[in-house]
């Protein structure tokens, strides 16, 4: 396989608070290869957004990367100065956020917001930047884009605004897009269109995507590989087919039990008994053990590392190579 485009190793994100340090992301590792779509799933509060924010260098203070490293195209980016990071943001890593209604500056035309982004990163004249803006707006499916350039965000519907946001993320051809719940705030009827658009455009441009969502249905349809987060930790990572059909981690198994089989409204995450522990009350050992149907003594005592089980990997003692239970389980 080619070298990874993005490589995250043992990432830890801390929020120092008055009541002590909260670890929102704890030892997460994953790779994204060029052109690949990595789905990142997990319940609300699992650390998905903070992982994305750490990659793009936009953690909100007091949040900070406390450990680990992030490489983009072989270059370490978690230690860059703000000014150096700025040249990575937008240029190499684009972002799409959850709410298109609030992602655009209401006081500037979408044309201006596009051209300023384009001209920040590319040596183009204003006229050339406008041409490019029109072209990108056309690509994301805005009708008669040349006429819409001077329109303000409020003159677009929610779905159209998210298309504009995607155009902004893609306008200088970044290598990677971090899409944090890009359809959650949209009308259900539009969600599939926007996801499909994102997927098509990234395929066409060879752009990789880190697609953050809590919707397993979206992941199953869109992603190449999946990373499952639980309590700020990586539970499992692997190709979408394996994770969906042959999950290793008991938590993933629980998630998959409620993937939609029909095309009705996609269900939200798992109704696994209990709820994810809060950051202030993280249980010792495996974070999932209070809810896990397969938990045994070791789970409460020791935190499981990520065990390779090609093509996937899971942080669960059941998959420890020496573990008798693993073989037992694999056989059944």
């Amino acid at each position: 396989m080619s070298d990874p485009l993005l490589s995250v190793r043992d990432l830890r994100v801390d929020f120092p608070t008055r009541r002590g340090v909260l670890t929102a992301v704890d030892g997460v590792s994953f790779d994204i290869h060029p052109g690949e779509i990595l789905g990142v799933v997990g319940e609300s509060g699992a650390g998905k957004s903070q992982t994305g924010a750490a990659v793009i260098g936009l953690l909100e203070p007091p949040g900070r990367i406390a450990a680990g490293d992030i490489h983009l195209e072989g270059q370490r980016i978690d230690r860059l100065s703000q000014e150096q990071l700025r040249k990575v943001r937008g240029r190499k890593i684009g972002a799409v956020f959850q709410d298109p209604l609030t992602s655009l500056n209401p006081l500037y035309t979408i044309g201006r917001q596009l051209t300023e982004t384009i001209r920040t990163h590319l040596p183009l004249s204003e006229a050339e930047a406008r041409d490019r803006a029109v072209q990108v707006l056309g690509e994301v499916g805005i009708p008669s884009p040349a006429d819409r350039l001077d329109a303000y965000p409020h003159q677009f519907s929610g779905g159209m605004r998210q298309r504009v946001v995607i155009a902004l993320a893609l306008c200088v051809n970044p290598r990677l897009i971090i899409a944090d719940e890009p359809t959650t705030a949209l009308d259900v009827s539009i969600q599939a269109q926007i996801t499909a658009l994102l997927k098509r455009l990234c395929r066409e441009h060879g752009t990789a995507v880190m697609l953050i969502t809590h919707d397993m249905g979206v992941i199953a349809e869109t992603a190449d590989r999946v990373a499952v987060l639980y309590g700020g930790r990586l539970a499992e990572v692997g190709p979408v087919d394996d994770v969906v059909n042959r999950p290793l981690h008991p938590y993933t198994e629980g998630l998959m039990a409620c993937i939609p089989t029909t095309h009705e409204r996609p269900p939200r995450l798992a109704q696994i008994e209990g709820s994810m522990p809060s950051l202030t009350a993280m249980p010792p050992g495996c974070a999932f053990h209070p809810r896990c149907p397969h938990a045994f003594d070791r789970c409460a005592a020791e935190r499981p590392p990520l065990f390779d089980h090609p093509p996937s990997a899971a942080a669960c003692w059941l998959w420890a190579p020496e573990g008798a239970r693993a073989t037992e389980r694999a056989a059944s």
Partner: peptide, 11 residues
């Protein structure tokens, strides 16, 4: 969000 997004665009 739009300021966060403006930063994310590398402005």
């Amino acid at each position: 969000d739009y300021i966060k997004f403006a930063r994310a665009r590398g402005l």
